[in-house]
Amino acid sequence: MSLTIPTDGAATEKNWLEKVGAGHIVLAVVLVLYPLVASDFFLTQIGGYSLIFGMLGLSLMLLAGYGGMVSLAQITVGGIAAYAIAILGNNNSNVLGFGWPWWLAVPFAILAAALASALIGWISVRTEGIYTIMITLAIATATYYFAQQNYAIFNGHSGYAGIRAPAFWGVSWRDPKPFYYLCLGLAVLSYAAVLYGSRSTFGMTLQAIRDNPRRMRALGYHVTAHKVFAWLLAGLIAGLAGVLLVWFNGRVSPGTIGVDAAIDVLIIAVIGGLRHPIGPFLGALVVVLMQTFAIDIVGAERFNTLIGLVFLVIVFVSPDGILGLWGRIKPHLAQESLRSGP
């Protein structure tokens, strides 16, 4: 499957079709045609929601996969963008709400999220491994409790409600089909940016820093600056997802950025696989489907047990998540086709 990273070298001689890869084209066609067969519920509550959480997972994948920094604060970064939209734009909670138009509020919200992400990165890059997880968890928890108890900015426990997605070009962007395509477009943009970035000079340097920071430092690279810049980029993606999330829910409250949600993002990235940017999207799809439909399978009392068991099985069978699972099946399929072939 050409979803794996194509090897470089001969890239210049390929035409654009080969560069994009057949797998991507098939996937794109499927996703673009998806609204033809899906109900409104499957479009937004499953499709749109999976893409949003896939983007949050992608921002974590960028940090963890290429930078070796596992963060639990990605939902916090997304939440900052979501709160910024509520505060800068319109809400019906009678607190703040400056009424900025969307084209002004959105860039500011994403910028605020990216700067917050860079700040979190700047604090946490001096730690490694489990300590990065701990410090980002601490930041996520502290932000949650601060939002819960601050009334001047975050409006406390009830947060902000009545936030509307904009309507422009004659399209109301919260309607099922436009919203799905909006999510899809931005997810593809983020995905392509991460894929491109991973092969850029910066991406290569980041991966080298992940593998051996001491050597990179000895070679004269500014390790901290590279890591903080990665946080900034991850913050852009998480911020974008946060904007979509607040338009999706129409509201934002501390529950949106709670520890449960932070762990959900980590689960999505781990379930999907951290080795390729497509992983978090696969993970998000599995997690959202499970969280939505597990209650129909085993009833209201034990559905969280089922969700946990499925995740456990995935990680148990393949430590690399769903991507790793694919990597294992692939050789078998190849073998089979050889056997059945001429």
């Binding site: 499927v30 998806y34 067969v37 899906a38 109900s39 499957f42 499953i46 799809l285």
Partner: peptide, 8 residues
């Protein structure tokens, strides 16, 4: 992808 996403 289809069975996962649609199942209408």
């Amino acid at each position: 992808v289809f069975t996962g996403l649609t199942a209408p």
